[in-house]
């Protein structure tokens, strides 16, 4: 039973913004796999190539306003896919400008777990990422120790205490 590889995906059409996200999230790279994409199509195709036995996408940061498929539509499409790789994935929409209808779609159909306004503070993004990754690991009952150093450690310790996922032996 090997520990799954946990991915953080970032989808953003503007290269300098994508670089900024990847740079801000680089502290997580020691423990998580960080991948950047410049379009929804590119990300969608790449996800198809993941190994359902070994890979899990923990978190997707996706821009909303992009040429081609928009963020909300891409997230809705992922929501409909029945891949193990995408089970429980936390989807964050980056947007300064989502309308009323798009917000409804985001919640009802795309399963967006968080809206992140642009621009963001790097520290804020790191803390958000840490919280969402911790949520994911706990909710999906993934053995947390290999990832603990980059998660909210107090919450993980309390989770271990309350749920006894592993024991004296």
């Amino acid at each position: 039973m090997n520990d799954p590889k946990l991915y953080i995906l970032c989808v953003e059409d503007e290269m300098d913004v994508l670089d900024a996200i990847l740079r801000d999230l680089s502290p997580f790279e020691s423990t998580f796999q960080l991948e950047g994409f410049s379009s929804a199509q590119e990300a969608g195709a790449w996800i198809d190539g993941l190994d359902p036995d070994a890979d899990r996408i923990a978190l997707i940061y996706c821009d909303h306003v992009m040429p081609g498929q928009r963020g909300v539509d891409f997230m809705s499409e992922l929501q409909r896919r029945e891949s193990v790789v995408l089970k429980g994935t936390c989807k964050v929409l980056f947007t300064g400008q989502a309308g009323h209808q798009e917000t409804i779609t985001a919640i009802n159909e795309a399963g967006i777990c968080h809206y992140q306004a642009k621009p963001w503070e790097p520290d804020e993004l790191v803390e958000l990422t840490r919280k969402l990754l911790t949520d994911f690991v706990i909710a999906e009952a993934i053995p947390p120790l290999p990832y603990m150093s980059q998660l909210d450690q107090k919450r993980i310790a309390e989770h271990l205490h309350e749920n006894n996922p592993f024991q004296d032996a």
């Binding site: 450690q153 107090k154 310790a157 309390e158 271990l160 205490h161 006894n164 592993f166 024991q167 004296d168």
Partner: peptide, 12 residues
């Protein structure tokens, strides 16, 4: 209690 559960609690 189990050593493991105690450790988890005290780490918190």
């Amino acid at each position: 209690m189990s050593n493991t559960a105690t450790t988890a609690m005290m780490m918190a």
